[in-house]
Design a protein around this nucleic acid. Structure first.
Length: 155
DNA sequence: GCCAACGTTGGC
DNA sequence: GCCAACGTTGGC
């Protein structure tokens, strides 16, 4: 039994938003094609982990809600699909290159927590979000997770 | 739409 | 194995 972890995962709002996740209930987090993000999902996520759902390329960009990891890591099927924009000809079913987990909808915040507010918050200065601009799966602390949850629910 | 940051590719 | 060129992310 491992300790529960907390994450922030980014999705372009126009591509897949918290509203889409609420509609779908659960979704496979396809399309991560960055090795560091892949390693985190493949090696460090567990069912029950909680996720800050971040809208990138949004107005404003920010945390839009909360999801939960509900599967063990498994190969991202889109890497094998020649029709997919995520197809990777160097991956094989014997040796998958890209991994993902399933996420379950928990909550859509009544207000987005914009990145600007995170940048200005004294307790959130250490977040990877502010330092690792392009990392689309990143670990957050329980405290960071709780603070952003409070900000998102304060109407 | 611009462009800084930065990850990836490929020639050598 | 270096590193310049290139491509992508993502805030603004």
């Amino acid at each position: 039994m491992t300790e529960k972890s907390y994450w922030l995962m980014k999705s372009e709002e126009s591509d897949y938003s918290i509203t889409d996740l609420r509609r779908d209930g659960t979704t496979a987090w396809t399309g991560v094609r960055n090795y560091e993000a892949r390693n985190l999902m493949r090696d460090q996520t567990s069912p029950g982990d909680l996720v800050l759902f971040y809208h990138s390329n949004a107005k404003p960009p920010g945390v839009a809600g909360i999801a939960r990891v509900v599967s063990e890591p498994y190969p991202d099927a889109t890497q094998f699909d020649e029709e997919s924009i995520y197809y990777d000809g160097k991956a094989s079913r014997a040796e998958p290159r890209w991994w993902l987990v399933d996420l379950e909808f928990i909550e859509a915040f009544p207000r987005i927590v914009p990145i600007q507010e995170i940048r200005e918050h004294p307790r959130l200065q250490d977040m990877d979000l502010l330092k690792r601009l392009r990392l689309s799966v990143q670990r957050v602390t329980e405290e960071q997770f709780e603070i952003i949850g409070e900000l998102g629910r304060k109407g």
